[in-house]
Write a protein that binds this DNA or RNA. Structure first.
Lengths: 334, 334
DNA sequence: CTCTTTTTTGGGAACGTTCCCATTTTATCA
DNA sequence: TGATAAAATGGGAACGTTCCCAAAAAAGAG
């Protein structure tokens, strides 16, 4: 298994207790320190993490569970989480729950089995309320990013999805648009519902008429946005379209151009998310930027507080962060 | 810490040994099995992973170390790795070495400290040959994806970068292009060097003249590709440009269009990587698709073999997988 | 029913640490 | 120098498992 603390002790002519103390930063005599340094180097000694964790009942690891590791969407969130975690002395490990999410919510086992000190669930897709209930009743440190299902007693951070779309509609309205189509995301996604609510609310507030035939559902992929837009183009009558995420908006952009219409002169397009490519499609996409890094930071801070017992369970709350409109070239005046 | 095997034993009226055996799938009497099931359920018992790992000296975890978790580039690779790993009974955990890669190659500590059974380094950027040497001399299971620095005794899987660009030049040549510009990636990246070599080789084989002023360096970002293309456009004389990755090519596409040239009629553009967005930029990008998933699978298989002692260290080798040209709309005849 | 074989069980050591407590060594002060 | 305080050290239990070995129970054979 590699050298142990005993081997070091023997080589340095001292006891394992002294070695342990030295490794944990306690004071030892200068002579012993030198002997220990020498022995550790010579043996290439490393403390066994599993033995430490067993006795300490602590791992200093935070698990970040996402649905798809490579989702570009998460880049900023992850940066935020890692930043806070590292400062506080934790390492992050990332898992996809596609492989982990069977009948039981098996990522909870990471906690039950003592593999990690806490979990951040990134845009957790609950299948039933029971899932959230299970998370709540496990008394372990957990932070949710995304849908919290309106359940309290769970620490959750989310972006104010409704506000983002609300702002978009307001912006289009200020450019003179009155007829605004909408490409929604998948029904079941909570974020999608909130965004759509923002659309409805804004339309109503601004006195615009909501036309069901100007709303088409997509799966939030470019492909899906492309197809949705093709359907919308047959229905006519609107001068702007909102994609409920940037990928769908990118697909829509393509469909409009293939249809022979100029963006932004004949049709305005807005996305949502501000993924990195949005600046580089043609024309560059007006969109809404989510405060990803801030979300990640907030979640990590809340989690660490739970782990270290600072946070009173009662004080747990849902934190909503506001997104920001990014104006580029894909919208014109009507 | 939660209930232990002792608690279960007491409640079920048996010994801890029997509990342990049952949990490990050995035969017990039907009566005891029922008592155990009941006790386990009642206590919500879960085995402590750290205690198990300590005694078994095995974690069944594979660490996948990447430079940036959210790099879309890795999506397929990760899928490949996870697929094989799960079948073989391992869980994957993903780490970024930006946070981990200090003076010491600290991800090696994951092995020394017994935190994981093996490591897959995805497109490892060595800083000095000493790094590879350290990896080799640590006798632990490690697989490299990407640059292997020509060093043997290390299990490495890589894509045949030169072949990909070679094919691109051949394709452009077949369309009638004779003057072909090139947007390179960062000098230090090994993949970039191989790709550029492919460019040079192909030019020579096909009898085309290599003009240094038609090669500009980028940082492989869209922004970088955009700037590089602006420089190239001032120099004129070529009818096609190869971006050494899709992001740079996307930026180039944009610069060309802003410059008033039509793609593909007046300028052909090719990318490299086939990232998901490439199909959706306008015009859709002809590019080279890397066998990402196959790479991931190959690396995971090699690693598991090392862990399980099947693989003779001598047999370790460098595996080169071939990419494939994907023809879309961004190239025209000359 | 007894003897043998097979199955099931329990006790205890081991894995490599940390931490408490008692003891020894060193430092301080009069 | 001797008494006392402070610093450094060593021994041993504990953390929650697994696994070996011996003992007990059950099953099978005659």
């Amino acid at each position: 298994m590699g050298p142990t603390i005993h081997d070091v002790a023997r080589l340095a002519g001292t006891s394992k207790s002294t070695v342990s103390r030295y490794l944990n930063g306690q004071q030892v005599k200068k002579a012993t320190q030198e002997a220990l340094d020498k022995a550790i180097k010579e043996l290439n000694f490393h403390r066994n993490a599993n033995a430490r964790r067993l006795v300490l009942d602590r791992t200093n690891i935070i698990a970040v569970v996402v649905d798809n590791i490579s989702n570009i969407f998460y880049s900023g969130v992850i940066r935020g989480i890692e930043g806070v975690a590292n400062v506080k002395g934790y390492n992050c490990t990332f898992l996809s729950w596609t492989s982990n999410y069977s009948e039981e919510i098996s990522f909870l086992n990471l906690l039950y089995e003592g593999q990690v000190d806490g979990i951040i669930l990134v845009s957790f897709q609950k299948r039933k309320n029971e899932d959230l209930e299970r998370i709540r009743e496990s008394q372990y440190p957990i932070a949710l990013i995304g849908d919290h299902g309106g359940m309290d007693g769970i620490f959750a951070v989310d972006v104010d999805n409704a506000a983002g779309v609300y702002d978009i509609v307001g912006y289009l309205h200020s450019l003179g648009h009155r007829e605004i189509a909408y490409i929604s995301g998948p029904q079941h996604a909570a974020a999608n519902q909130h965004r759509f609510n923002g659309y409805l609310q804004a339309m109503e507030t601004l006195g615009l008429t909501y036309r069901p035939e100007w709303v088409v559902e997509s799966d939030w992929s470019s492909q899906g946005g492309y197809r949705a837009m093709q359907q919308l183009l047959e229905r006519k009558g609107f001068s702007a379209v909102i994609g409920s995420n940037d990928e769908a908006a990118t697909g829509a952009l393509r469909a409009i151009q293939e249809h022979g219409l100029n963006v932004p002169k004949q049709m305005s397009v807005v996305g949502y998310d501000d993924i990195s490519i949005s600046e580089w499609v043609y024309p560059s996409l007006t969109t809404v930027r989510q405060p990803f890094e801030a979300i990640g930071r907030k979640a990590a801070e809340g989690l660490v507080q739970q782990i270290e017992g600072v946070q009173d369970k009662k004080q747990e709350a849902i934190h909503l962060l506001k997104p920001k409109l990014i104006v580029r070239d894909s919208c014109g005046t009507k």
